[in-house]
């Protein structure tokens, strides 16, 4: 599983995302602060190009102690990537769907070394 350099660290936007094709596999690399995450660009729903979708905070419902809802608000901490085919959302940090953690993206190892960002992929047979 060779490491492939995808970008200079300084050239990677923060927050940011790059989707690249490495050895026949499309990989989405996401940056949130100093953290990097990478996933295969294939949605677990119907294989749509999930990593090429919009990046948005998780929508939550603001519910008071007595059950009153104050409506919807965006999360201050969780960022999602939204599959552009049908809208499934995935937590960029965990790769999981907010409603069902069994529905998740396939993680690809990613690391920062000597000022560059690398991913490890197994080339397609």
């Amino acid at each position: 599983m060779p490491d492939v350099r995808v970008s200079e660290l300084a050239a990677f936007e923060n927050p940011g995302r790059k989707v690249v094709e490495v050895a026949g596999i499309e990989v989405g690399i996401f940056r949130l602060g100093d953290e990097f995450f990478a996933y295969e660009n294939k949605c677990p729903h119907l294989e749509g190009p999930v990593c090429q979708g919009k990046i948005l905070p998780l929508a939550t419902e603001d519910i008071q102690r007595d059950g009153t809802s104050n409506g919807r608000v965006f999360s201050k901490t969780q960022m999602n990537v939204v599959c552009p085919w049908h809208g499934f959302e995935f937590d960029i940090r965990t790769g999981m769907h907010p409603m069902d953690s069994r529905v998740r993206l396939r993680r690809i190892p990613v690391k920062v070394l000597d000022g560059a960002v690398y991913v490890s992929v197994t080339p397609k047979a």
Partner: peptide, 8 residues
């Protein structure tokens, strides 16, 4: 360079 895929 690697082929980059843009946002849809």
């Amino acid at each position: 360079p690697l082929r980059e895929l843009p946002e849809i």
